[in-house]
Nucleic acid binder design. Sequence first.
DNA 1: TAGGCCATCTGGTCCT
DNA 2: AGGACCAGATGGCCTA
Length: 289
Amino acid sequence: MNNFKTEILGKVTQVLRESMDSDASRVSSRPSSPEVDDLFLSTARKSGGGFSGAVSSTQSDSPQELSAELRSVSAHDEDALTVKMLTKKDRKLLSESELQSMRLKINSRERKRMHDLNIAMDGLREVMPYAHGPSVRKLSKIATLLLARNYILMLSNSLEEMKRLVGEIYGSGHHGGFHPSACGTMTHTAPLPGHPAVSHASHPVHHPLLPPPVSTAASLSAPGISAVTPVRPHHGLLKAPTPGAGPLGSGFQHWGAGMPCPCSMCQVPPPHVSGINAVSMPRLTTDSK
DNA sequence: TAGGCCATCTGGTCCT
DNA sequence: AGGACCAGATGGCCTA
């Protein structure tokens, strides 16, 4: 058995090295490689060959599967591999080709899953106020998520501001008439469990990640990740909104002049994600090119 | 060259 | 049982 595996591994190594060169171009096209793989795999599947037939004949899968196998072998040793492959009862009952076929199937599913995730991430990038184009580097995943969060918070804040303005215009008495509802209706009465960021949406100003309400639009639209950078001052810095603030800037009167917002949610410390931001930003700020 | 980002493989866990 | 989801490991590519 060991001799057999050694021989196989020797051939595998040779095949892998040969395939690496031809595979390099495909791998290097990072964003499109999943699509290529997926298209190929789906095509292979549809063609009726199934995975067992495509195992050794495909150009896209075999090298990766083999390289993965090599990695596992290099990480352990052949005995470990043998043990690994024979530990589970069901695996004993399967031939190596069946095992490999099953592995390919699982790997393909996982690739597809990650591919779908990437598609969703691309969809998110598309709707982000971020300079798109061939000359602009694509947002990283973490940057996309952080920017999306900021964007949502900004929109929520804008919505709150609109409500407040409407309340002021139509005058409903109670200190401008909108703080209680703002605190009570949207988020505070029914915060999503375990999601302080979301439940805090009406008070995005608390969060270091949140950009200013109006200037954000410009910063979000600017190329680069500046939109994700924490440009918003903290609660205390907004105690006394300047008269020169934009039309939406006055919305931070929410908690009054110098008075902290009394609502309970405002006492909750912001989530500790600024560290992530701080870490990721140095690189991101230079990504726009 | 180091670090960031990414794709992929893989085994484990949970769910249907 | 099969599939989805997750996290760790690994290696490639790119940039400062």
